[in-house]
């Protein structure tokens, strides 16, 4: 049913990037994530799938502490990045987010020029020593975002003037410009047409060489195409986690099976 050939390619054992243990998330009285433990590998695309409202975004946002900005959100449990507890008091969420970049569901470029959109992160983290340096970082990021050729002649035009797909790739370029180690993408293709989607997917495959990628997607095909590992969430529980090929061809849990065959969700 799904083209899982990519995922069935060699799955080498990579080092663990994120390791989450017994994570619980509450929004006020809502128990959104229930006791989730998962290991996310380096240089791997991990896909989060599951029906709407099951907590995929919530869990994703735990990984770079974006949930800190929501007053009523409470995160418990243990999440380690390279062995270090990211919810430790000594960890500055600002530094964490420089290491763990994020691309949002809706393209959200700053209402600034294309150049400034990409240059902003490197600037605030002091990654460039001078203007030439910064120019180089911006160009490299835009190239990796697969959008350089389309915007190289209009770097000073506002990023908000681009098409939806271009904006999303600009946001990806903006995220990679800070040289993160992990890239979190929350439904990065939901606003894109098939062509832009395949561009972004190619990009993910490319980025996998250097980063650990975590994507949330509602498209089973996409999960099967780009990811090596898949996690299936249901009602706040992590129901099943394993090799993508395994999950799609031979799910262990019946909820997983009914979801990927389209019976729930």
């Amino acid at each position: 049913m799904y083209d899982t050939s990519i995922s069935e390619k060699t799955v080498t054992q990579n080092s663990i990037k994120f390791s989450a243990r017994n994570v619980q998330v509450h929004y006020g009285d809502t128990h959104a994530i229930k006791d989730v433990s998962v290991d996310i590998e380096d240089k791997t695309v991990t896909a989060f799938i599951g029906p709407s409202g099951c907590g995929k975004s919530t869990f994703l946002r735990c990984l770079n502490r974006m949930n800190d900005t929501i007053d009523i959100c409470r995160v418990e449990g243990d999440i380690r990045l390279d062995g270090q507890d990211i919810y430790d008091k000594r960890v500055d969420p600002v530094q964490l987010r420089a290491k763990v970049g994020m691309v949002f569901q809706k393209p959200n470029p700053f209402p600034k020029s294309i150049y400034d959109n990409v240059a902003y992160g490197p600037k605030i983290h002091g990654l460039a020593r001078n203007k030439a340096d910064l120019d180089e970082i911006v160009e490299r990021a835009l190239r990796r975002g697969a959008i350089w050729d389309e915007v190289k002649d209009r770097l000073n035009e506002p990023g908000t003037g681009l098409s939806g797909g271009q904006q999303q790739r600009l946001c990806i370029a903006r995220a990679v410009a800070t040289e993160p180690e992990v890239l979190l993408m929350d439904e990065p293709c939901s606003a894109l047409d098939p062509i832009a989607t395949s561009q972004v997917e190619e990009l993910m495959d490319e980025l996998r060489k250097n980063y650990s990628l975590v994507i949330v997607t509602h498209s089973m095909q996409q999960a099967a195409r780009v990811s090596q590992k898949t996690a299936f969430f249901h009602l706040g529980n992590l129901v099943e986690f394993g090799e993508t090929g395994q999950i799609f061809t031979n799910p262990q849990d019946e909820r997983t099976e009914s979801y990927i065959t389209g019976r729930i969700g």
Partner: peptide
């Protein structure tokens, strides 16, 4: 100001 702008800035590590 839409929350997406805040998230975008927080997401690249702005304080």
């Amino acid at each position: 100001v839409p929350p997406s702008i805040r998230e975008a800035a927080l997401g690249v590590g702005a304080s």
